[in-house]
């Protein structure tokens, strides 16, 4: 069994009846870097949530880091979750929290209960948090409140928290959606370097295909909740991408009235 992840004939349907993933089978080894691309609503976020144990599939088998999360005991599931780092598209940071607290929160799943509580009185690891934040040029914002930061800065604080968590598997849902092209590329570079350094599995959904091609050796194209292609990046062709995004292009040209063009 791969210690990355293994999905076997997974089905997931949202509570409103929308089918998000259908008969999905995927596996990854430790240390693989995978980019997931596909049009909006193709199931990218659902797939990442599945890997993050945020949702439970209705059908199929799922193994993350070598274990089946939904048959674990409560405390074992907590341990597994502490080993999975999920970078959310919208950083889930309370506006009134200080950046230092937001970053240190990455480790509360691993710290003792007392340490987590005491850290609210005096930050338990200022140096560690600073080290993670400096990698994103935000070292001088360590003691600012989150609501003082711009959307792009906040997104990078969210990323810094996951690096601080030191996960065994890193997941990222559109991690650079609020960043400009130059910063986007540098941030993705930092993430892939980190994953390589620690030899951990790294899965990211991206809408920038060029960044995905450049930094990820393996690419998965998702469409309508199914894998359209799963190839080494070198083998992904223009035709692949065209088919992947085809439905979006067509529906737009149909809906836009002629007068607006």
């Amino acid at each position: 069994m791969a210690d990355g992840f293994e999905l076997n004939q997974i089905d997931f349907t949202h509570s409103n009846g929308t089918i998000a993933l259908q008969n999905l089978t995927l596996r990854a080894d430790v240390g693989e870097h995978i980019a997931i691309i596909g049009p909006s609503g193709s199931g990218k976020t659902t797939l990442l949530n599945l890997l993050a144990t945020a949702i439970r599939p209705q059908q199929g088998q799922l193994h993350i880091l070598g274990v089946a999360p939904w048959s674990l005991s409560k405390s074992k599931l907590r341990h597994l979750r502490a080993a999975i780092g999920l970078i959310h598209q919208v950083p889930p940071l309370p506006p009134k929290q200080r950046v230092i607290t937001a970053i240190l929160a990455g480790k509360i799943g691993q710290w003792s209960s007392l340490k987590s509580v005491l850290s609210l009185l005096y930050p338990a690891d200022i140096a560690g948090a600073l080290h993670c934040l400096t990698q994103f040029d935000l070292g001088d914002r360590l003691f600012d409140r989150c609501d003082r930061l711009s959307g792009g800065q906040l997104q990078r604080v969210g990323i810094a928290r996951v690096l601080y968590q030191e996960p065994k598997m890193m997941l990222a849902d559109e991690p650079v959606s609020a960043l400009d092209p130059v910063l986007s590329e540098r941030t993705v570079q930092t993430l892939t370097h980190y994953a390589k350094d620690k030899n951990i599995t790294f899965v990211a959904s991206l809408h920038d295909v060029e960044i995905a091609l450049k930094w990820f050796p393996r690419m998965i194209g998702l469409r309508h909740g199914q894998v359209l292609f799963d190839l080494p990046s070198g083998q992904v062709t223009k035709e692949h991408l065209h088919t992947l995004y085809a439905s979006e292009m067509r529906s737009f040209s149909q809906e836009v009235p002629a007068s607006a063009l």
Partner: peptide, 11 residues
């Protein structure tokens, strides 16, 4: 969202 994210990090 914030508390849910923390649960997903093992809190």
């Amino acid at each position: 969202q914030a508390s849910r994210a923390l649960f997903l990090a093992g809190s």
